[in-house]
Design a protein around this nucleic acid. Structure first.
Lengths: 326, 326
DNA sequence: TGCGAATTTGTTCACGTGAACATTGCTTGG
DNA sequence: CCAAGCAATGTTCACGTGAACAAATTCGCA
């Protein structure tokens, strides 16, 4: 039926130049109020919607934010994406989500795709490892790194979680309960977050004058499988009475291993999770955890990308995590 | 530094016409192999990426799929989005996610935004209610309705879950355990799914020759709050010994009410959830549920939008849910 | 050898938008 | 009463891509 409504079709309809229509719709000062009103009125009647592709081709900034996450099933990432979507909604932005599965090839592909559709703003949870391909796509793109930090060949603002105090508190909490053999499962040195969490755990042990037990400290890639595998081994072979997790996925994996072994967190083994998915309050008597303030992170990310703040500073924005004891 | 690499810049670089470049890159037959190879080689060297905005402006189909979900925190939607993202990845499509919060105004806005960026393929969980605005944007857009069906003024393929057998099974299962006062909380008649689930519940009661107890049957909007409110009331005021939920959000809400009342599912009250989030295996002795085959749904949606199958048929694709007893 | 046909490459145009520059008409001050 | 200045509107162009049409080159076969 009806043709697509463009600035030109409105112009023809009103018998004026398409530029007057363009100016009227973008509130350019030099348009008679009568003209502007007539144009806006008619545009509304005809159901005009600006063609974003045409704008993008002219080089105008796209109203799209790209979001790269390892996955979106883990409740932390889901909540983050959810909040990002709401924040974007509020600023008339759209959200394109790519899942990396913490695989660097996927990350590269995703960035290329975003570049392809002219996206100039990206929030990403960087995948551990080094990117081979030139990440030159990112040249005129604002990138925010989230949760982790990696050298992507250019300074970028980064949003990190300062979880060291909470992790130290967790150890102190367990020590106060009399635990001596506390296990730790977390990301490895590939990630800044992995390093700092492990350091915090050790510092926690030191402060409570507990001996570090190497066989109870496991690190690896930040995956669910890694958490599950290590937890299984610890539960079956080592005599740990408590466990601290340093990572969203890892924590879920470890919890799975716990359940499959028939253990109940807080009854048979004191478990400290990471992040605060809603089901933590429902499992057993509730699971204690290092809670990350998700929503502030998301709003910060959108703010950084929309405010005229830092273009390519390498400022690190820290949000403090807290220990929730249940 | 370097300018953006376009088909024209490559042409100038090679001293040929931009059309030869265009043809070479799109594997047009009438290009000498030597030329094609040279062009592709140079394109790779220079890091050429096709400008999707320009393509979209010409009217070419965009490689973007729009996804409208109530939220993305509920694990069913999260899993669905996750699988969609993977399926899209496999077909070089990008996923734009909009959250409706089951609010029709948001739904309209989201569709308009997608139209704005020239998206011609949309998967949506329709929000209950009637849309005021002309959904004319959808004119040349393929829309798939998911999980629910609503008249959007045009026939669309729809992907539904046939959960009636599973719900009847659930009632039978509870009846076999000796339950007489089984509560039901689900969506209301506004939704096709609400109607059919309630009907299945009633049918289940009838088949087991149980009397229907009106005060234990609650319906309303498909929200978490609704589930929580009704469950609270039932738990505090009515003497139900079992509860069946008909909806993802509703089920989580009801579970929350259960927990806050200090009850344990399967110990103090037999609870049948809806959907199968991972934590169901972790709560108490495990929560029985009406499990929906998420991944097939997602792949089906992408298939329908990419295959040259039905353009605007109103075919209903059904996937059967099953009762998982834990 | 020559001429139409097939192959390969080139030129122009449109898509929708808005910047830059051009034109029209009106006001104002000398 | 006219020039200068400004407000309002109009015309042209570019953005990157690929269809349509045009031109050049090569090929096949009489």
């Amino acid at each position: 039926m009806s043709e697509r409504v463009t600035i030109k079709s409105i112009a023809k309809d009103l018998g004026i130049s398409h530029m007057t229509v363009s100016r009227a719709l973008s509130n350019h000062p030099n348009v008679m109020k009568a003209t502007r009103d007539a144009v806006k009125q008619r545009a509304r009647e005809l159901g005009y919607v600006k063609n974003a592709a045409a704008s993008a081709m002219r080089g105008d900034e796209t109203q799209i934010i790209g979001l790269l996450l390892p996955n979106i099933v883990n409740e932390f990432y889901a909540q983050f994406a959810n909040t990002m979507a709401l924040a974007c909604e509020a600023k008339s932005l759209q959200l394109v989500i790519h899942l990396t599965g913490d695989n660097i090839a996927n990350e590269e592909k995703a960035l290329e795709r975003l570049h392809q559709i002219q996206v100039q703003r990206v929030v990403m949870v960087p995948t551990p490892g080094k990117s081979e391909k030139s990440v030159l796509h990112l040249r005129d793109t604002s990138v925010i790194q989230l949760i982790r930090q990696r050298d992507i060949g250019r300074p970028t603002p980064t949003i990190l979680v300062d979880d060291s105090p909470a992790i130290r508190d967790a150890v102190a909490h367990l020590a106060a309960q009399g635990h001596q053999r506390i296990a730790y499962i977390g990301a490895d040195k590939e990630l800044t977050s992995g390093r700092s969490r492990l350091a915090a755990f050790r510092e926690g042990l030191k402060r409570t004058e507990l001996t570090e037990i190497p066989e109870l400290i496991c690190t690896g890639g930040p995956s669910k499988e890694m958490g599950q595998t290590h937890a299984r081994r610890i539960l079956n072979e080592k005599r740990a009475t408590a466990m601290v997790c340093g990572g969203f996925e890892i924590s879920n994996g470890a919890l799975g291993a716990l359940m499959e072994t028939g253990l109940q967190p807080s009854e048979n083994l004191s478990f400290i999770g990471y992040g605060d998915p809603s089901f933590y309050t429902w499992v057993g008597r509730g699971i204690s955890t290092v809670a990350v303030p998700v929503e502030p992170l998301a709003y910060k990310a959108v703010d950084l990308l929309t405010g005229r703040a830092d273009p390519a500073s390498d400022h690190i924005h820290r949000f403090v995590a807290s220990l929730i004891v249940r």
